[in-house]
């Protein structure tokens, strides 16, 4: 660092004028910064970064918890021949289709609430409240709701076990998921709307815009960053928190019809004791998350 180099003569005169063991301010600042960031870094390296590296290694072994054999990259090709793997991957893809609903419905609710409906503050709290309950509890209630002759059957007048049928179980799961995201996303959008500069909308109206034109040209662009935030939160939830719903509601079944990658990891590792394969699924999940993240970033950049 060039700034630290001082002519010899001068640093000598400086030492005379003050205690030499004192560090310079900028050195103190950098050093303090370094020291203060170490605990966070150490924690994350130990519990997140190192395990990623290990996971890559484990993924190329056959390991039942006791004996471990190295297979190498062919472990991946083997996996790609497993039809269950593809079904799980498809399930993840299908659940991603729920994400637009998990964004659009809260957006609609937020825009309507923003109309200053009487008691909007009360409604906001009510919509937000389910966010506090755990996925486990939501799953327990949803399980009864979708059960044979349960409340849903009573409402629509059918006798279907929605979770027991492989054609409807995933849909039931997706609906539960969308429902659980409504609170969080509505509040995100409401906050975004509250920061909207109304004079811009007024200008749009003075310019002769219709309500819809104003929404699509002023409100929606303003909400872009909030939509991104909601999108990321929703996808993270879909790729991690959904585990609890599946654990409680379906256990991944019937068959593999509601198994997603995050549940597959758990199941393969802790029910079937195939640690190597489970680690591999973890890597696949990691890559999926990375792809979504990168696509999301690209979309922002392209605008």
């Amino acid at each position: 660092m060039a700034a630290l180099v001082t002519p010899v003569a001068m640093s000598r005169s400086v030492e005379r004028s003050q205690r030499p063991r004192r560090m310079r301010l900028s050195t103190q600042r950098r050093l303090t910064g370094l020291v203060l960031s170490i605990p966070a870094l150490a924690l994350v390296v130990a519990f997140v970064v190192i395990p990623i590296v290990q996971a890559v290694y484990y993924s190329m072994t056959q390991w039942n918890g006791v004996t471990s054999t190295w297979i190498g990259p062919s472990a991946y090709t083997q996996t790609f021949h497993n039809p269950a793997f593809w079904q799980v991957l498809t399930n993840n893809g299908l659940l991603l289709l729920a994400v637009p609903f998990a964004l659009a419905i809260p957006l609609g609710i937020a825009v309507l609430l923003h109309e200053r409906v009487r008691g909007w503050k009360f409604f906001r709290s009510v919509y937000f409240l389910p966010t506090a309950i755990s996925w486990v509890v939501i799953g327990m209630v949803a399980e009864r709701f979708f059960a044979y002759d349960g409340p849903l059957d009573k409402i629509i007048g059918s006798h279907t076990d929605f979770l027991g049928s492989s054609s409807t179980a995933l849909l039931a799961l997706a609906i539960t998921f969308v429902w659980s995201m409504i609170g969080t996303n509505t509040v995100i959008f409401l906050t975004g709307l509250a920061t909207l500069d109304t004079t811009v909308q007024e200008a749009a109206f003075v310019d002769g815009a219709t309500a819809w034109q104003s929404f699509s040209n002023v409100t929606l662009p303003h909400l872009k960053r909030f939509v991104q935030l909601a999108f990321i939160m929703t996808v993270i939830s879909a790729f991690s928190a959904l585990f609890s719903l599946i654990f409680v509601m379906t256990g991944g079944g019937p068959g593999y019809s509601t198994t997603t990658m995050e549940f597959f990891v758990y199941q393969t590792g802790f029910s079937q004791s195939e640690f190597g394969t489970a680690a591999l699924y973890g890597i696949v999940l990691f890559v999926m998350m990375a792809v979504v993240g990168i696509v999301q970033l690209k979309l922002i950049r392209s605008e």
Partner: peptide, 17 residues
Amino acid sequence: SRGELRIGGRVANHMLP
């Protein structure tokens, strides 16, 4: 970077605030 700053006659270049 270079030169000397004196406060009350003492060289202050590397004094802490």
